[in-house]
């Protein structure tokens, strides 16, 4: 079960990566990032359970608080982005020429 827990975390992480790369909508990209964070947290919990230590859960706690902070700032940025570009297309913020 421990091993399968890790595999589950790995699968979720890979799915989250795919999501970040595929979706152009910023909201979806942020969601995929949340998925990835969650998968990382799962990995930590599984590791803690393997050794029956509380450290896994503590790190999961930290990940949680970090995700919260990141979501708040990220969504504020998304609102700014929408306000300027009137679109949620991540590729719109591209000022490079050539």
């Amino acid at each position: 079960m421990i091993r399968d827990g890790f595999i589950l975390a790995g699968i979720l992480f890979a799915l989250g990566t795919a999501g970040v790369l595929v979706r152009r909508n910023i909201i979806f990209m942020l969601m995929s990032i949340e998925v990835m964070l969650n998968a990382a947290g799962l990995a930590f919990i599984v590791a803690g359970a393997r050794w029956s230590q509380p450290d896994g859960q503590i790190l999961f706690l930290f990940i949680l608080s970090m995700a919260a902070a990141e979501v708040s700032v990220g969504l504020a940025l998304v609102l700014r982005f929408y306000h300027q570009y009137k679109l949620l297309d991540a590729d719109a913020a591209n000022k490079m020429r050539g």
């Binding site: 091993r3 890790f6 790995g10 699968i11 890979a14 393997r50």
Partner: peptide
């Protein structure tokens, strides 16, 4: 991931923390 983890041993239901 699967490759890395493939040598892990099966531990059974872990003790709750």
């Amino acid at each position: 991931f699967v490759y890395i983890l493939s040598e892990e041993s099966h531990a059974n239901i872990p003790a709750p923390v």
